[in-house]
Simulated scan of single mutants.
Amino acid sequence: MQRMRTGAGFYGLVFIAGFITFALHEGGHWLAAILLGHEAYFGLNSAGARGAVSAADHAIISAAGPAVTVAQALIALALVQARGSAVGWIFLFQAAFMRLMATVISLFNPNDEARISEWLGWGPWILPVIVTAGLFALLAVGVQRLNVSWKTLALSWVVASVAVSAVVGLDMIMPR
């Protein structure tokens, strides 16, 4: 089986897809807040309702971002499976990478899945591990389908790390 073709354009898209993945994820939080009737805010690395919200609304808003990211991964995997899409693989990779990084950050600041896991009485790690493991299982299917090399995985990881750093850094300096 031939390996997936990569090059500068491929890795440029890995970088751009990092920003798009964050925008979609945060857009899920924002849209949930709006649909629940709240005034909402949207940033590169945060979105949600302004002001106080009920516990139920907070849980729905928190779940909406990861739900969008999981939907992104499922759609991307479908493109990989049906069409052998390298672009689909990039968006699948970014979904898994993003939620893994969010899980790691939960060591310092609980992410969406960690908060929901706590609210469910499961402790802070059950849901983040389930979501991250599930996304990496989907990614493994995509890696196998497209015969992705370790070099491509490693370079995608480096580029995605730069993209996440750029998103977080820019979000910290942007005016609110």
Rank of each mutant, 00 (worst) to 15 (best):
A102D: 13
L74C: 15
T152A: 09
T6Y: 03
G65D: 13
S165K: 07
V87Q: 15
W125P: 05
A86C: 09
R50M: 14
A154H: 03
P66S: 10
I105M: 10
M1F: 10
H38K: 09
A59K: 10
A96E: 04
V164G: 03
I173M: 11
V141I: 10
L44N: 03
S54H: 04
I126S: 01
V148H: 02
R99I: 11
A137P: 03
V158F: 12
S156P: 00
R176Q: 15
A8I: 15
V159T: 07
P110R: 04
H38S: 05
G7V: 11
G169R: 13
W30G: 01
V148Q: 00
H38T: 08
S149M: 07
G18T: 00
A33T: 01
F93Q: 12
V148S: 02
G169A: 11
G7Q: 04
V148M: 00
R83D: 11
F91Q: 06
F91R: 05
A78P: 06
T152H: 01
A40Q: 08
V80L: 12
G12W: 09
S156Q: 01
S117P: 02
H29L: 11
M101D: 08
A78G: 12
G65W: 12
M174P: 09
S54G: 10
A17M: 03
L13Q: 11
F91C: 09
A8T: 12
V68D: 06
W89H: 14
V53P: 07
F97A: 11
V68F: 14
R176D: 15
A163E: 05
Y11P: 05
L107W: 06
G9K: 08
M172Q: 14
W122N: 00
F19H: 10
A8K: 12
P175F: 14
G27A: 10
L155N: 00
S165N: 10
Q81Y: 05
Q2T: 14
G84V: 08
Y11T: 02
R99Q: 12
A96W: 11
G134P: 00
L107Q: 08
I126T: 08
H29Y: 11
L120I: 00
G51K: 04
R176A: 15
A154W: 02
W157Q: 06
V68W: 11
G27F: 07
Q94R: 15
L120E: 06
L170N: 13
I16T: 12
L139V: 01
Q81G: 08
I105K: 06
G142K: 01
T132C: 05
S156F: 01
S106T: 02
P66C: 13
L107C: 03
L13S: 13
